[in-house]
Design a protein around this nucleic acid. Structure first.
Length: 425
DNA sequence: ATGCTCCTGCGAA
DNA sequence: CTAACGTTCGCAGGAGCAT
């Protein structure tokens, strides 16, 4: 038995915890660079604000309807997420942290009666100790738990935020599956939903009963797993230990268009810095780095996109070495005269630092370099991020993303940020 | 015929 | 005030190449 715990309108709920005046009000949170809507409260949904809409398209609408708009504040959301996950870890034997606002938990060892009781306790505890409302779905597989959660969120009033499918008979469960359209199943996106429509497969129930071979052929093995999980046969394991990343990406749109190579270099140096920090954090080294730059596909004018992959003979996790390599790549793909809107890097071919193979060339990270990185990381950890950084990262950084909602509310939020650090527990 | 790497498509939050 | 559309990850399978 598996439960999926999902925080309601997570980013908005985080803002509400520190600003009770937002309760019962329409609130939205924007993506990086104040680009698109990524979180909405029920009140905002009721106004018809869609997920993923570019903010500039609805800015006037929000003003007219007194919608509270926030730039994303990931330091806050990350902190709230850790609190929620810690409580879940204490109340469940096994947990898979699936995303910033979601976790699967195993309910093995509980009787059906106990499960229902326990789920209610989990919900109450999280809400009481963090102020974040959650919805919980329970099923015999991950896909069914997801589906249950989806219904819990959709009908919060009737369900009180909890849907438990395991007490249901097969036929009662099928009645529910008939109400779920295939596109709403976890793992079935837009393209797969279209393919299924063509097969006259419209609901979760249709998919559950459809011919195995045909599903395998049209949706590949992943589609088959989903089908099997709908039937109650687990195919997807609970991944309780986080596996190290196979690639680490850092990319961002700029606050304004950039033309000059030196500005792009600064941005790239910053990307390498954050990615390399993550790399060292999981005790890995990378053997190649991909650099890319691009113009805005949404703005008319000459378009340019290019990327290049640079390799190291033996891997590295030393920031300055990686920056140097990234610069060499950037200089190869840079073309003058374009208005660049985004740059990014990907660390690839990642291996565990310990079992790194000796190479013929003596290009490994030296003890000295490793010690330098350790020291740098430890200083930034205790003194705050980017206390110490490479000059290549620049000091001005005028190209940084926009995240200044100029509303009066926003300018008064320094105290809120301070509250986050001194946890009220 | 088989095995490898690279790239693309898709889905998730 | 301007101009104005996000980021990060994994997996499957086909393409292309080598053996």
């Amino acid at each position: 038995m598996i439960a999926l715990v999902d925080c309601n309108s997570f980013f908005c709920s985080c803002e509400r915890v520190f600003q009770p005046k937002l309760l019962k009000k329409p609130v939205i949170v924007l993506s990086n660079n104040d680009g698109c809507v990524v979180a909405r409260t029920d009140e905002a949904k009721a106004l018809g604000i869609k997920m993923g809409v570019p903010y500039f398209q609805i800015k006037d609408f929000c003003q007219k309807n007194s919608v509270f708009v926030y730039s994303s504040n990931f330091a806050l959301y990350g902190d709230m997420s850790r609190r929620v996950m810690r409580i879940l870890s204490e109340l469940a034997p096994e947990i898979e942290i699936y995303s910033i606002d979601e976790a699967f938990i195993s309910l093995d060892g509980f009787s059906p009666k106990q499960i229902s009781e326990h789920i209610h306790r989990i919900k109450e505890t999280v809400e009481q100790e963090t102020g974040i409302p959650v919805s919980i779905g329970v099923g015999s597989t991950k896909v069914l738990a997801k589906l249950a959660n989806y219904r819990a969120k959709k009908n919060k009033l009737q369900t009180k935020g909890i849907v438990n499918l395991i007490e249901l008979s097969e036929s009662a469960l099928d009645l529910i599956l008939k109400e779920v359209s295939v596109g709403d199943i976890w793992g079935i996106g837009r393209k797969s939903a279209e393919k299924l429509q063509r097969l006259q497969v419209h609901t979760a129930y249709d998919l559950k009963l459809y011919d195995d071979k045909v599903i395998q052929k049209t949706l590949s093995i992943t589609g088959r797993y989903i089908q099997e999980e709908l039937r109650g046969n687990p195919c997807l394991d609970l991944e309780t230990i986080p596996t190290p990343k196979k690639q680490i990406i850092s990319s961002r749109s700029f606050g304004r268009g950039l033309f000059k190579l030196e500005d792009l270099k600064e941005a790239v140096a910053n990307h390498v810095t954050t990615a390399a920090e993550k790399l060292r954090h999981q005790n890995s080294i990378a053997h190649s780095i991909l650099v890319y730059i691009r113009t805005s596909p949404f703005k008319k004018g000459p378009q340019y996109y290019n990327s290049i992959t640079m390799s190291l003979h033996s891997g590295s996790s030393v920031t300055n070495k990686l920056i140097k390599l990234a610069f060499a790549g950037l200089e190869k793909i840079y073309r003058e005269g374009f208005e660049y809107k985004k740059a990014g890097i990907i660390l690839m071919d990642i291996d565990d630092k310990a079992h790194t193979q000796l190479s013929f060339f003596n290009t490994h990270d030296s003890d000295k370099e490793n010690l330098l990185m350790e020291t740098l990381d430890s200083i930034n950890h205790t003194e705050g991020e980017s206390t110490l950084k490479f000059a290549a990262c620049g000091t001005n950084q005028f190209w940084r993303m926009l995240s200044q909602m100029k509303s009066p509310q926003y300018s008064t939020r320094w105290s809120d940020l301070l509250q986050v650090n001194s946890s009220p527990e």
